[in-house]
């Protein structure tokens, strides 16, 4: 489904972003009657076939060089993407993830702190880290909702609330999507800078993955500040968010030198990355809230229960105890997760 020709030509397309790709001239001796041998549409389309991201382009006198594109065959593929691919990918990824999470909840239930809450807490995230997380998170929710609206709104919402209201809402959503994106992009950048050091892969990550973090009861693998699951989430967010930002800004700023095929590609990449990331983030939200006892306060208050920390991040706790013992403090009895 995803393997539309757009993807087959991902790299050539990026290279071929220059406009005015000269049409392949028909081979004609100059003395021949030019009327009889006039260039035809079919001829030009056939010539384009080896590289379907090209357009039949010619010369126009107006400064809008894109107007020189007479026929762009990739419009058909974009249409297929927009009406089918993204819809199906989204319809599989997001409800699928929700179903998976529900299934997981049914099987595993809430992951409890096995040792029970202790009286001690350990500082997990400083204020600025939490600020960045929430900035990224809230903007992602706004972007996700307004983005999903463009994919599913027409099918799900429009019949319910009517064209006028839906259009007004979508228009607003589009403005929100455009402007909020800057906060999101900034957040992604800061998160990368803050946490990349702790998210570099380590050998023990393999064990963590093999044991699936102990969540299905194969015992608790050790982890540093971030376990392999969190690292995967980090990289998904950074790469996914980064991709979204780059493709989004291409869509937004529309560099003149970009061919339509490049713009289409940006749109496709943006959309698909978007729905997939939404699905991934759903898992993140699940595990940070309903799915695991004691996890939410890491971002809520910045501190976590020491027992929770020991269970999930034993290596890290040891390091903190060694380097910054002050971060571990006897606090009040832990409150249940919000």
């Amino acid at each position: 489904m995803i393997a539309t020709p757009l993807f087959r030509h991902l790299f050539p397309a990026l290279l071929a972003m220059l406009l005015c790709v000269a049409p392949v001239a028909a081979q004609q001796p100059s003395a021949v009657n030019p009327t009889a041998s006039s260039v035809t549409e079919k001829q030009l389309l056939d010539a384009l076939k080896p590289n379907s991201t090209d357009t039949i382009a010619g010369r126009v006198s107006i400064p809008d060089v894109r107007a020189g594109n007479l026929i762009q065959p990739t419009g058909v593929e974009f249409r297929a993407y927009q009406t089918t691919t993204i819809f199906q990918v989204g319809a599989i990824a997001i409800p699928g993830m929700l179903a998976l999470l529900a299934l997981f909840y049914l099987i595993r239930g809430r992951v409890r702190i096995q040792g029970g809450p202790s009286a001690q807490t350990i500082v997990r995230f400083a204020w600025f880290s939490r600020f960045v997380h929430w900035m990224t998170a809230t903007s992602f929710i706004a972007l996700g909702l307004s983005g999903l609206n463009l994919v599913f709104g027409k099918t799900l919402l429009l019949p319910v609330i009517g064209a006028s209201a839906f259009s007004a809402m979508s228009q607003l959503g589009k403005f929100v999507h455009d402007y909020v994106s800057f906060a999101f992009a900034l957040g992604i950048f800061l998160m990368f800078v803050m946490w990349v050091k702790d998210n570099l892969p380590a050998l023990r990550d393999i064990r963590w993955i093999v044991q699936f973090g102990g969540m299905l009861g194969f015992g608790h693998p050790t982890a540093d500040r971030f376990n392999a699951g969190q690292k995967l989430m980090f990289w998904a967010t950074i790469l996914g968010g980064g991709t979204l930002a780059v493709s989004g800004y291409i869509m937004m700023f529309r560099p003149v030198s970009f061919a339509i095929s490049a713009m289409q590609l940006a749109t496709v990449v943006h959309g698909l990355t978007g729905v997939v990331l939404v699905a991934i983030i759903l898992a993140h939200i699940y595990i940070g809230t309903v799915g695991m006892e004691g996890a939410f306060r890491a971002m809520g208050r910045g501190t976590v229960d020491l027992n929770w920390a020991k269970e999930h991040h034993s290596v890290w706790v040891e390091k903190v105890a060694r380097k910054r013992p002050k971060d571990i403090s006897g606090g009040p009895a832990p409150a249940p997760a919000e």
């Binding site: 009517g162 064209a163 006028s164 007004a168 228009q171 607003l172």
Partner: peptide, 18 residues
């Protein structure tokens, strides 16, 4: 013609530079 469509439907959004 779209049902329920009114000219004023987007007046508020229009000020955002549509």
């Amino acid at each position: 013609r779209n049902a329920g469509m009114t000219a004023t439907g987007l007046a508020a959004v229009g000020t955002l530079g549509a």
